[in-house]
């Protein structure tokens, strides 16, 4: 099951980006996805923090996988994840205090992001460190890409800017709803629809492509 060949590592690395994308395909980790993607900067900060926590805890869980007793594995994962979240929290507070303030409790809530816990239970605890690392990097990248898609469209429509740079000039009429929580739901639904259509077209090019 866990033969570490280069092909296998590559497969684990790429699956999270598209085929098993944590947000667009698995629909995991919806809480940060909906809550903090109202601007590109917030999306990047949340994506990077989650990426760091996911990669760190996957590696550690994989290294410790033979030592963790089955009965208490979930609580052990949580402690490992919480350690990395604390690191990420402090790092963000020191480096980008403004963004840290805006993200607020959502940084601490990375602990309960089901994407991270899911990867530990489903993958890192059953595979050697190199594969776990590849899986975590792929999933983390997929998560970042998805957050950027949402954050980008919501900031462009909701504020007329990208990363704070105004795109349309002063006469832009912002779509207020896009930076509010309903905008997150609407945009996520639209993006999920788009990806479902793309996947369907890929699978049955003749039937659907009308």
């Amino acid at each position: 099951m866990s033969a570490t060949t280069p092909e296998r590592v590559y497969a684990e690395l790429t699956k999270g980006i598209w085929r098993e994308n944590p947000i667009f395909v698995q629909v995991l980790g919806m809480c940060p996805t909906l809550a903090v993607t109202n601007s590109v900067m917030n999306a990047i900060a949340m994506g990077v923090a989650t990426f760091f926590v996911l990669v760190g805890s996957s590696l550690l869980v994989s290294l410790l996988r033979r030592l963790i007793p089955r009965e208490v594995r979930i609580s052990t994962y949580i402690i490992i994840i919480a350690t990395f979240v604390t690191l990420a929290d402090s790092a963000l507070e020191a480096l980008v205090p403004a963004v840290h303030k805006e993200l607020g409790a959502f940084i601490a809530l990375i602990v309960v992001n089901c994407l991270i816990l899911g990867r530990q239970e489903a993958f890192a605890s059953r595979n050697p460190p190199l594969l776990a690392l590849a899986d975590a990097i792929g999933m983390g990248l997929g998560f970042c890409i998805a957050l950027l898609c949402l954050g980008g469209t919501r900031e462009i429509l909701g504020a007329g800017s990208f990363l704070g740079v105004s795109l349309f000039g002063p006469n832009f009429e912002p779509w207020v709803i896009m930076v509010l929580p309903p905008g997150g739901f609407l945009m996520l639904g639209a993006v999920l629809l788009l990806f479902a259509v793309l996947r369907q077209r890929k699978r049955r090019p003749k039937e659907v492509g009308a």
């Binding site: 009429e173 779509w175 207020v176 709803i177 896009m178 509010l180 309903p182």
Partner: peptide, 8 residues
């Protein structure tokens, strides 16, 4: 409702 929420 969408227009009202987007462009109050």
């Amino acid at each position: 409702a969408f227009i009202q929420a987007a462009f109050p």
